[in-house]
């Protein structure tokens, strides 16, 4: 059995939650004061996910970098692999919000998309 202590981010309370689990099975969630905490703790222990935001090199644009994000959450343990791909990517201006800059980043099935418009100069 494994045990993990978490701080809930569901609201400003920041409940200290203890989760006991074995493999993919949650045995207990303690310390939360509402249902949000329970859900957060279960996801966080078994399949923690994050949105990654960064910037991508852009040539021929009004700015040297275009900000970007993963279009949805990716597994937490893929964050640095994702950053490596983003840091080697290069795109050409113009770019519009939502344009795909990197497809299927780090084998997650999630695209990296632009979060602002960069006009060409």
């Amino acid at each position: 059995m494994e045990k993990r202590n978490l701080t809930c981010i569901g609201c400003p309370m920041g409940c200290q939650i203890t989760v006991e689990f074995e493999g993919e099975e949650i045995l207990s969630v303690k310390g939360n004061t509402c249902a949000i905490g329970d859900k957060y703790a279960r996801n966080e222990v078994l399949h923690p996910e994050r949105t990654v935001t960064s910037t991508v090199y852009i040539s021929g644009g009004k700015l040297p970098r275009v900000p970007c994000k993963t279009a949805s959450n990716i597994p937490k343990d893929k964050i640095f692999e994702c950053m490596k791909v983003i840091n080697h990517a290069a795109v050409k201006a113009p770019v519009k919000i939502g344009d795909v800059l990197v497809e299927d980043v780090a084998g997650t099935g999630v695209n990296v998309v632009a979060t602002r418009n960069v006009e060409a100069v």
């Binding site: 949105t51 994000k69 919000i97 602002r116």
Partner: peptide, 21 residues
């Protein structure tokens, strides 16, 4: 450029540049 903006205004999580736009 991080996300977390707009949960109250637009009911979705936006990055700063997206919120501004």
């Amino acid at each position: 450029i991080h996300n977390g903006f707009g949960l109250h205004t637009f009911k979705e999580e936006l990055t700063g540049p997206e919120y501004a736009y």
